[in-house]
Simulated scan of single mutants.
Amino acid sequence: MTNTTPHPYASLSGRTAVITGAASGMGEATARLLAAHGVRVCLLARRADRLTELAEKIGAEGGRALAVPADLTDQASVDAAAEQVHAAYGRVDLVVNAAGVMLPNPIADGRTDEWQRMLDTNVTGALRVIRAFTPGLIAAARDGGTADLVNISSIGAHVPFPNYAVYGATKAALTYLSQSLRTELGPHDVRVTNIEPGLTDTELGSHVDNAELSAQLDGMFDALIGLSSDDIADLIAYTTSRARHVNLRQAIVLPTRQA
């Protein structure tokens, strides 16, 4: 007997998504999964070669993808990316802020270069993307469609970890921003979801230049059996495929062994 039950993500088909940080990790996994369910995906990140490779893979698998190299720390670059997206695919109804950097070090080290990079990417970069695509989200919802803004924060937003103070502060800012934006966008029927992953296997760990902290992170993965980027992508697909009047506003997702 043929199974005629629709796939739980079937409602995603025909939507258009912008995904930042799409060159690797959660962003890449999310792009591939959404594209597999009929979403046109716009891939934003700095590494043009990785984006082109991903877009080609998605195309070979029957999906539609647009590679858009962009530096979220540069307003002109984000503006140019938004123009390219709109010219190619028109209005966007799904935005996933997956770009981020994690640079832990003791606060006493005074690494102002790291502080600024995390603030520029994790907070200001997300704001630039939100500013660029929120009008489209509002218009999509006004016309009866489903519209989603998904911000990927971190469990570090409210659980302190030694030497991660500035990273945690940037993620706390993103969590609060998501909460506040619901009061502005909810009345327009735009859903805002904040996702706080625990230990997840991405390239973030490779950014750490402190040998002791890097080894500590590796030890945590061995002990806790961290999540994969695919796990987070699956949660995003589930969240954004719900009926348009249902907003899964906050999701904390941890490895089972992480307290």
Results as ranks from 00 to 15, higher is better:
R244K: 04
S11T: 14
T239W: 07
Y89C: 15
A251C: 14
A147C: 05
S13R: 11
L204S: 10
A76F: 10
V41K: 08
A67G: 10
Y238V: 14
G136N: 10
N210K: 03
L72D: 07
V190G: 00
R40A: 15
L149R: 10
Q75R: 10
A126N: 07
E61R: 15
A233V: 13
V101A: 09
P106C: 01
E61S: 13
D74S: 02
G21A: 03
A70F: 00
E53I: 06
L227F: 06
E83H: 03
G110L: 12
V96Y: 06
D109V: 05
D113H: 09
V192M: 14
S241H: 11
C42Q: 12
G90A: 05
D230K: 00
A31L: 11
M26W: 01
E114H: 11
T193F: 12
F221I: 10
Q84H: 14
I58C: 12
T183Q: 15
G21I: 00
A139E: 15
M118I: 11
L43R: 06
P255M: 05
N105Y: 12
M220Q: 04
T52I: 11
L224F: 07
L33R: 09
A31T: 15
G226R: 02
V159L: 04
R182E: 11
A99H: 00
R91W: 09
T146N: 00
L119C: 07
N105P: 05
G144N: 09
T239I: 07
N122E: 03
R32T: 11
H86C: 11
G186I: 00
N151G: 09
V150A: 04
A23G: 13
V166K: 01
I225N: 06
V190T: 02
E203N: 08
N97F: 01
T183I: 02
T202L: 03
A80K: 09
H86V: 12
A60V: 09
G90R: 07
E28P: 05
K171D: 03
Q116D: 12
A88G: 04
S13I: 08
A65W: 15
A31K: 14
G38N: 10
P255G: 00
Y9R: 15
T170Y: 07
A223W: 10
L177I: 15
T170C: 01
Q179C: 10
M220S: 00
A35D: 11
G90M: 02
I195D: 08
G125P: 10
R182H: 06
V192D: 08
E114P: 00
F221P: 01
S153E: 04
N151L: 12
D230P: 02
G156N: 07
E203S: 11
T202H: 08
G226T: 02
H188W: 01
T200L: 09
H207E: 15
D189Q: 06
H37I: 05
P104R: 09
T175L: 04
A45F: 11
P6S: 09
T52V: 13
A172P: 07
S180E: 13
L254M: 12
T240G: 03
M26T: 07
P162K: 13
G25F: 07
A157Q: 06
V159C: 01
Q250H: 15
G198P: 01
A139D: 15
S13A: 15
W115T: 10
N210E: 12
Y9Q: 15
G14C: 08
G38I: 09
P187Q: 08
Q75I: 10
L227Q: 02
L137K: 04
D113V: 05
Y89G: 14
G136L: 07
S214H: 13
G226K: 02
G21C: 01
R47K: 08
